[in-house]
């Protein structure tokens, strides 16, 4: 890239595919595996992560002029932890069943490397509008793989999608393994390989 600092649009598009947090950077893998046994928890998780990421990016971008280099990480952590607590309380107050099902994985957003890396790479260096575009792009880029994995696991494992029955039990035996932990590893592994294969094929075609 020629420009030293990408524009808002570039940041937005970057987050969705070229620098996709899950497929390309392998960031924030814990929730990708842990909450994707159903579409509902996966999307709640994606929304929670998105809200924390957007809020943290805005705040960090607003105060970026006052940041001291050696106190930077401290400020990031403080900001993220606060917004995670607020999100956690909101989930507990308004979608209690989901909050109970997600359990410790909501507070674990604090140590999701995705958020701190976006604060470091983008928000602490660029304007608020760019930071917001970056956060939204990254959130979509994070929600996409979550949705992919959750769809596969929920359809194959319990024959439902968002809790609505799709595959009848009479002709689709439930693959119990899919909603169990091993299913998460297997589906993500195969999905990563697929995305790798697709990139290689495109690169090969472009080369021809």
């Amino acid at each position: 890239m020629a420009a030293s600092e990408p524009t808002a649009l570039e940041r937005f598009i970057n987050g969705i595919l070229p620098e996709n947090p899950v497929f390309r950077q392998l960031l924030g893998m814990c929730p990708v595996l842990a909450v994707t046994n159903g579409m509902k928890p996966a999307m709640t998780m994606a929304a929670a992560t998105a809200s924390v990421l957007i809020c943290a990016n805005i705040i960090i971008s607003l105060i970026r002029g006052f940041l001291k280099p050696h106190l930077r990480i401290l400020v990031f952590t403080l900001t993220i932890a606060t917004f995670v607590t607020i999100t956690d309380r909101f989930l507990a107050a308004y979608v209690y069943t989901m909050s109970k099902q997600l359990g410790p994985y909501v507070p674990l957003i604090i140590v999701n490397c995705l958020i701190i890396s976006r604060c470091e790479i983008c928000a602490s260096k660029q304007r608020v509008s760019v930071a917001i575009a970056d956060a939204v792009g990254m959130s979509i880029g994070y929600a996409l793989p979550l949705a992919c994995i959750a769809t596969v696991r929920e359809l194959l494992g319990s024959g439902t999608w968002f809790g609505c029955p799709v595959l009848a039990e009479s002709w689709w035996p439930r693959w119990g393994i899919m909603v169990l932990p091993p299913g998460g590893f297997l589906v993500l592994g195969i999905l990563l390989a697929t995305s790798e294969w697709y990139t290689h094929r495109r690169a090969a075609r472009a080369g021809m």
Partner: peptide
């Protein structure tokens, strides 16, 4: 050095 951290802590 630390005024920002203190201010943010109060705010949060």
């Amino acid at each position: 050095q630390a005024w920002l951290v203190i201010l943010l802590a109060l705010l949060y």
